[in-house]
Nucleic acid binder design. Structure first.
Lengths: 239, 239
DNA sequence: CGTTCAATTGAAATGTATCAATGAAGGTGG
DNA sequence: CCACCTTCATTGATACATTTCAATTGAACG
C-alpha cells in the first residue's frame, strides 16, 4: 500500500503565518504495530550521549528536551537549557540522527506514552515508500524551522513578548495535537515549572512569573498557578 | 556504485565536544554532474516564500540566511535576524523542505558559487542509495543541532562569550571547509558586517564592536577592521 | 572632494538578573 | 493527623549588562 504522494500533507500549519507547527507525525507509520513505552513523570526517555536506537512519537503526555553545553571546555558551570517541549503526536530524538547519539535529555513532565520506531527499521521503510521518506524529511525540516524560530525569539524579543508567544504557541499545539480539531483552547494547564519556561525562553524564573502576572493585570490572561485562561488573544499577539 | 555504508562518516566533528560541525556535504553527490551557479555579493540565492526547487552546496564564497518574522500579525516592525552563515561545503535550503517553500533569504556575502541539487532528483537518489539517504538525514539532523545550539547561546551566554564563541566557530569551520586540512587558521577575514554578527548573536552592532575591542585589549585577538587574528584560543574558550 | 556606509567610542536610559523574603502545595514520617 | 521538609511561585529592592542615542573617524566610490 503505497501511501499518498502529496508532500507534507500531514503537516499542520498555523493560521497566522502558514508555517508548520511541530506536531507532525509519521502518519504512514500509524499502520505499523510499533511497540509503545510508558514513562513516569520526571523520568528520562533517553539521555544525552546514549546511542540512538529509536525515534519516538508522543502518544500521550508531555516531554521537555534539555541540552547541556560544556561551558567552553573547562570547569565553570556548564550551560544548560530546555530546548523544547513536546506534546501528543510530536516526534522526539531527531537531533541524534547526525551523530548516532542523542544530543539532549528527554524528560517526561507527566506520565506519558510514546511509540517506539527503531531507526534500523525506519530508514529501509523510507527507502521503500517515497511519501514516507518525504514525510520524515519534512518533519526534520520542520524541526529546523522550529529551532530557528526559537533562536529568533531569543535574539530579538523582550521578555513580555516571549512569554506571550509561548502561551500562544502552547495553545495552538494543544489544539493541533488533540484528536478532535477543537477551536483554540482557552484553558491551559501548563505541565512545566516556571523555571522550565524560563530556561526555554532564555529568562529567569522570576521574570517569567512577573510577565505572567503583568499579562494578568493587563487582562490578557487569567492566571491561577499553572492554570492559564487566555482571555484576549489579540492582546497577546499584538503587543 | 553503492557508496560506503558507514553512517555519518563524512561528518566532521569539533575537537572540543565531538559534535558535528555544519560543513557537512552530500559527498556521494560529488560524483554526479550537478550544475553550478554564480551569485554576486549582495544578491539572493533564494528568498523566503519562493517554492523550493533545489538544495545548494556552497562551492566557494559565503552566504548569510535571514529570517523575517511578522511581529505578531500586525503593523509593527517585523522581527528579522540572521539565522546562519554558510561557508564552503555547507548545504543551504534545508529549512524549506517542510513547507516546500524557502523559510528565509540566502544572501551572498561575497562572490560565491553553489552546486544546485534539484529536490526532485535528490529524493529518488536517496531511495536508491542507503548511505546517501542516511547522509541527507544526518545533514538535516546536524542543522537541527546547530540551530538548537544557537538558541542555547542566545538564551544563556553573555555578550562577550557570544562573540568569542562566534570567532572560534568561524575559525573551526574555515578549517573544516578548506580543501587542505590545515590547522586552525589564526588569520580570519570576516565577510560580514558587525550588524550581521550582532543580528546573528542577538546583540546590537555597537555591542559586538565593544566586545571585539575588549577581546583585543585583553590580548585574546588581534583586530584590524574585518581582519581578526586569534592570539589566545584558550582565553576565548575559557572565559 | 563630497557622499555613503561601516566601525568605534562615550554617556545615559532601560530591561532583566540577582538577592532576599514570604507563602502555598504536596509528600513523608513520627 | 500534624509537624516537617522540599519544591514551586510570587513579589520587592537593587545591581548590572546591554541598548539606545549621539558624535567621530575612516574607507570605498562615484
Amino acid at each position: 500500500m503505497e501511501p499518498s504522494i502529496d508532500p507534507g500533507a500531514s503537516l499542520r500549519r498555523t493560521a497566522r503565518d502558514g508555517a508548520p507547527t511541530l506536531n507532525v507525525r509519521l502518519s504512514d507509520a500509524d499502520a505499523i504495530p510499533f511497540p509503545t513505552r510508558t514513562v513516569e513523570r520526571g523520568d528520562a526517555l533517553y539521555c544525552a550521549g546514549e546511542p540512538l536506537r529509536s525515534l519516538y512519537t508522543v502518544q500521550s503526555g508531555c516531554f521537555k528536551t534539555v541540552a547541556t553545553y560544556p561551558s567552553a571546555d573547562d570547569d565553570s558551570a556548564p550551560h544548560t537549557q530546555v530546548t523544547g517541549f513536546h506534546f501528543a503526536n510530536e516526534t522526539l530524538g531527531l537531533d541524534g540522527v547526525c551523530t548516532n547519539r542523542h544530543e539532549s535529555d528527554a524528560v517526561a513532565l507527566e506520565p506519558s506514552v510514546v511509540r517506539i520506531m527503531p531507526v534500523g527499521i525506519l530508514e529501509p521503510l523510507c527507502r521503500e515508500y517515497a511519501s514516507m521518506q518525504h514525510e520524515l524529511l519534512a518533519i526534520m525540516s520542520a524541526e529546523i524551522v522550529r529551532a530557528s524560530r526559537l533562536a529568533l525569539m531569543l535574539g530579538t524579543m523582550p521578555a513580555r513578548e516571549r512569554v506571550a508567544a509561548f502561551l500562544l504557541d502552547f495553545s495552538e499545539r494543544l489544539e493541533a495535537g488533540a484528536a478532535s480539531p477543537a477551536e483554540h483552547p482557552a484553558e491551559l494547564i501548563l505541565p512545566m515549572t516556571r523555571a522550565d519556561i524560563g530556561s526555554y525562553l532564555g529568562l529567569e524564573l522570576e521574570t517569567v512569573s512577573r510577565m505572567l502576572s503583568k499579562l494578568q493585570r493587563e487582562g490578557a490572561i487569567g492566571l491561577n498557578g499553572r492554570q492559564v485562561r487566555i482571555v484576549d488573544r489579540a492582546m497577546l499577539a499584538h503587543h
